[in-house]
């Protein structure tokens, strides 16, 4: 979901505001506006802003649901920072993301190129097909892929058996489990990424390709010199959103492996969630959530800088 107003749009808004009108378009409608906003503002205040304020406050306390709170300063934060398990989970989440996002982008790119090169009917069919897994819940996806990974009778083992590889305990092997979780994650997540990629590809002016064709550029060179540079911003967007979404993966790891075996799939949010559920006092898990937020924000900015700086063509 786009988070910022695009420049074109804010320009449009400003234009609307500036337009003088006899109908009082610039006039203020305080009562009506706040009346109609009330349900949304109240909802967000009670269920988002108020919990956020309390979370910031309670991070500095040792507390649980039954006992009165005790102020402990930054201790919850230092405890998290000192906990190797936390950093291990962050690194694990980062590894998971690095496995998921590139594969997803490549598949989405192939999908986009394919959907563009076929007729309208088939392209419509492809778009409908690719989005199907997106409507399926993380729980169901987890259950199905658990079946697929069954040892020894699952499809995954049958498939690798065709290539002469012996059966693996995909979800029971500490070396394989995290990688095995990427498949359901990509399966559920590919729909949106692919459709965004496709619409971005459609936005590249057709005349560029025609000019390239006249110059004798083949498909690969067209992608290399036109599509990729033109879609720089979309890639940046998909990398950053893909990164933040997958760093926060919870449902699939929780249902498929619950962090196991031997914590090999204990991703950051699952680590926080387990602390939240099983710790006697709750300040630690909230401090961990805030630290994760900062780490993620930092890495997002870093990705942004890295990808933005090697800009070859101005978009």
């Amino acid at each position: 979901m786009a988070l910022e107003t695009s420049p074109a749009e804010s320009r449009r808004v400003r234009k609307q505001k500036a337009k003088p009108s006899s109908l009082g378009i610039g006039r203020r409608h305080n009562l009506l506006a706040y009346g109609m906003l009330a349900p949304a503002l109240i909802g967000l205040s009670i269920f988002v802003i108020w919990p956020l304020i309390r979370a910031i406050y309670l991070c500095f306390y040792e507390w649980n649901f039954y006992k009165s709170n005790r102020f402990v300063g930054w201790r919850n934060f230092t405890n998290v920072l000192k906990d190797d398990e936390f950093w291990n989970s962050v690194i694990r989440g980062f590894r998971f993301t690095c496995m998921v996002v590139p594969v997803m982008l490549i598949i989405a790119f192939i999908f986009g190129a394919l959907a563009r090169s076929v007729g309208a009917k088939l392209s419509g069919f492809l778009k409908a097909i690719i989005y199907i897994p997106t409507v399926i819940s993380g729980v169901v996806a987890s259950l199905v892929f658990q079946m697929i990974y069954q040892y020894p009778g699952g499809i995954a083992n049958w498939l690798v058996g065709v290539f002469g590889v012996e059966a693996q305990g995909w979800l029971a092997d500490t070396k394989l489990a995290l990688a095995a979780l990427t498949l359901p994650t990509i399966w559920v997540g590919i729909g949106l990424t692919a459709l965004i990629m496709l619409s971005a590809m459609n936005d590249v002016p057709e005349s560029y390709y025609e000019a390239a064709k006249l110059d004798g550029a083949g498909w690969f060179r067209q992608q290399r010199y036109i599509t990729l540079p033109q879609m720089k911003n979309i890639f940046l967007y998909l990398v950053v959103t893909g990164f933040t979404a997958n760093m926060q993966a919870l449902e699939i790891p929780m249902v498929m492996t619950d962090g196991g075996p031997a914590k090999s799939t204990l991703v950051p949010n699952l680590y926080i969630f387990q602390h939240f559920r099983f710790d006697a006092t709750k300040g630690f898990s909230m401090a961990a959530a805030f630290i994760l937020f900062l780490v993620m924000g930092g890495i997002s900015i870093l990705i942004f800088r890295l990808l933005q700086s090697e800009k070859a063509v101005d978009v």
Partner: peptide, 22 residues
């Protein structure tokens, strides 16, 4: 700004206090 700002709050940070509220 307040409304849009709520989109940036990771739900994990407020999961627990949301539970307190409800």
């Amino acid at each position: 700004v307040v409304v849009i700002g709520t989109m940036f709050i990771p739900w994990m940070t407020i999961l627990l206090t949301s539970f307190l509220v409800v």
